[in-house]
Structures are given as C-alpha cells and as structure tokens.
Write a protein that binds this DNA or RNA. Structure first.
Lengths: 225, 225
DNA sequence: TCTCTTTAGTGAATGGTATTCACAATAATA
DNA sequence: TATTATTGTGAATACCATTCACTAAAGAGA
C-alpha cells in the first residue's frame, strides 16, 4: 500500500471515528456529514472524496459494527473448551449484552429503526448478520451433533421451512435452528428493553435478571454450564 | 366545544393522520413538517398554529400509540373471564404481537431508537408505558393473589429493589414483578426481531414460534391457558 | 530535476429541512 | 356592524446533503 493509499485509509477511518463519536453524543439518526467535516476542519464536500454519499458511510459503520460484535462474541466463546457447550453459550450471551451496552450506537445501527432513506446492501449485511447469529448456532450445532442438545420444549418443526438451497442456514438441522432462535429472541428481548431504558428502575440488577433468563434457557435445552 | 374548537381539533387530527401515513411510507425519522403541510395544501409554517414544534407532534403521536396499544391489549384480555389467567395473558401477548405488526410506525415510535433531538415528556410517557405493562402485571398479580402463580423458575428477589414510595410499580409483589418482566422480555424479543426483519426466512411461521415461546413461558409460571 | 497526471480540498450553487415573525384574511363575538 | 381572535401566508434565518468546476499539492515518469 502506497504512502497515498495509507493516508487515504487513515482519513476514511478518522471520518468513521468522528461520526461514531457524534452519534454516540446525539443519537444515531443525527449523523451529519457537515458536522463531521466541521470537527475535522474540512469543508463538507471534501468528505465525498472518501465516501460517495451518506449511505456509504452508514454502510461502513454498520459493517464495522457487525464485525466488532462478531469478534466480541468469538473472543468470549474461545476462552472455554469446544465441548463446554453451555459455558460457551452463556459466555456468548453475556458478551452480547456487554457489547450492546458498551456500544449503544452500533447496536442501534444494527438492530434499531431503519434509518430513513437508507437501505443497506443486503449482499453485505446479510452475511455479516449470519456471522453473528452463527456464533450461537455453531455452538448449538456442535452440541446437537454430539447428541447433547435437548431441543427447546416448544420445538415445532412445522414452523420452519424445509432446508432449501438458497437458505444460508440450510446446514443447521431444525432443532438447532429452532433452539437457536429461541435463545436469541430471549437474549435480545432483555438487552433491547434494557438498552432503550424500558426495564423499570425497580429492577436494579439487570445483569442478574439476564443471567437468570439465559440459565433457564440453557437448562431448557439441557446445556447447563 | 365550539364550532371553531371542533375544526381546530379536526385539523390537529388530520395532521397526525398524514404524519402517520408518511412515516409508514418512508420511516419514522423521516417525519417532515414540510411534507405534511404540502400534502394538506398548507404552507409549512401554518402547522405551527396546531403544534408548537416538531417534538410536540411526535409527542402527540407517541401518546396516541401508547393509548392505542393499551386499548388493543384490554380488548383482547376482556374476552376471557377474570380468573382465566393463562388465557388472558396469552391473549394479551398475541394482541401485543398483532398490534406491533399492524402498526410498525407506532411500535418504532415507542420501542425503537430515540429520535435525535427529541426527548419525550417522561411525566406523560412514563404513565402511558405503565398502563401497557400494567395489563400484563395486573393479570399476573391477580393470579398471584389467588395463589395460582408459580414464580418464574429463575426468580431472584435480590435483583429487584425493595418497593419504595416513588416507584410506580411498588404495589406489585416481587414474584409478580419478576415474572412480568420475564414474560415481557420474552414476548418483546420475538416481536422486535420479527418486525425489524431479523428472523431468518427459514422460520416461515413466526406466529407458531411466538405462540410456542409464550406457552412455554406460561407453563413456567404455572398458568397454562 | 522537470513535467505530467492524479488526487485532496475548496467554494459556490441547488434544493431540502425546521423555525420565527410580521402581516393579511377570515371567522366568531359583542 | 364593529371589534377581536384565529388561521394562513410569505419572507427570512439557519441548518442539512449533494454536485460541480476549480485550485493546489503530491506522486510518477522522463
């Protein structure tokens, strides 16, 4: 990479960093190229040398967020041996919550309201999302292959499609898919309500609540840590 | 109410209706007073006769949404006798999902990303939220009073504050509060992921999945319908 | 080193947004 | 009918994204 290319990459990163900080300060949808440029002591139109438009910058931030979340989950999971399915799942869920609370902007970019006028490139965000969900599904899948998974009690195969070629999750057996969705919805429900401030103050220890919920889920699939 | 007051009220309602329709068409955060005025064949500044600013309009829409959701829950619940705790809870949860899918804009207003620069008046939105959550808590509370509630298996009293005077949920016993939060987070997790399009297509029957999840929850608190 | 070409950054212009305000037109009231 | 309150207008301010022609500077090749 030439000197010029390195400088260019550094500026692209700086733009993202400033944008992230400003969104953290005043909300996701308040992303303003003008404000970013002002902080960088640039004229607004200069940013168009680095991102073709606002949507491209959002896409870059979104893909960074996906990658960052996936990395956080992988790191959490890897400190437990491959066969400790319950411990790995629990670690992944705690990492999911911790990452969400620590990166509210990125969480909102991924899981919050669609940004008006913005439609992410599904060919990029789809696989990025699958890499996140895949962390959970892969653990469950290994437990299943090892005959250690008891499908979630409400498992209803009829709710799932038959695995078809175009389906990116086709290689997961129905009990794996179903149990994975059950875990993800459980985890996400608590995190999203907590992050947006809907858990009443009378719940003064949300982490304990979250752990309890996830442990109950793990017990329901026979994977106590 | 005088003729003038009626006309004024009608215009206020028309503004909200147009705003709702436009948000449904192109996203919550795309609410534009100019666009609303254009559709009503008014000049933008005319709208300021009816709402002091954009935030006031958002607040009106938000309170409408809360009231509409609470009404939908009440209607669903009231078709079952008061002692049919399980059936009432199940009906409320199905109504929560149905309302959310039918009113995605209102759902996003309530539960989605905070709108940048907008801070709702907590003295109004707080009680509105409590009326929604209260539908669930009241049913659970009655079951508890009747000795029919088995607290959720992960019930951990220590995660809750001691009931204090300022707490709007102070009159619910800890097992009621905890079990209520467990149900709400379960329900909300599925609905929010479904609404934002994160449930993979391989789950081709989300309603059955949702019912299964809620029935498992109801069973966990001993309130099968 | 000197020229040529690529690139970063500028500044003006267009058209969108919320909001304020002075003014005109209209409707209700005394 | 004369007065008053209210509705709507149009201009002005101050943001925003985006495009484009232009300048200045940096790198490449001779």
């Amino acid at each position: 990479m030439s000197r010029r290319e390195r400088a260019r990459e550094a500026t692209r990163e700086e733009i993202k960093a400033v944008a992230r900080r400003q969104m953290a300060a005043s909300g996701t949808a308040s992303l303003s190229l003008t404000a970013v440029a002002r902080e960088m002591e640039l004229v607004p139109s200069a940013l168009y040398r680095y991102y073709p438009d606002r949507d491209a910058l959002i896409t870059a931030l979104l893909l960074d967020a996906f990658a960052d979340l996936a990395a956080a989950l992988h790191i959490a999971v890897e400190s437990f041996p491959a066969h400790a399915y319950g411990a790995r799942l629990k670690a992944a869920s705690l990492a999911y919550r911790a990452w969400s609370l620590a990166h509210p902007v990125d969480f909102q970019l991924i899981f919050g309201n669609p940004i008006p006028g913005y439609h992410g490139p599904v060919e990029l965000t789809g696989p990025a999302m699958q890499r996140v969900f895949g962390v959970f599904l892969d653990i469950i899948n290994e437990a299943y292959s090892a005959g250690r998974l008891r499908p979630v009690p409400d498992f209803t195969p009829a709710a799932l499609c038959l695995p078809s070629p175009g389906n990116p999750f086709a290689h997961y057996a129905p009990p794996v898919m179903y149990s994975g969705l059950a875990g993800w919805t459980t985890m996400h429900g608590v995190v999203t309500l907590e992050l947006f401030g809907f858990l009443p103050h009378s719940l003064h220890d949300p982490e304990t609540f979250f752990r309890g919920r996830m442990e109950l889920y793990l017990a329901s699939v026979g994977l106590e840590p």
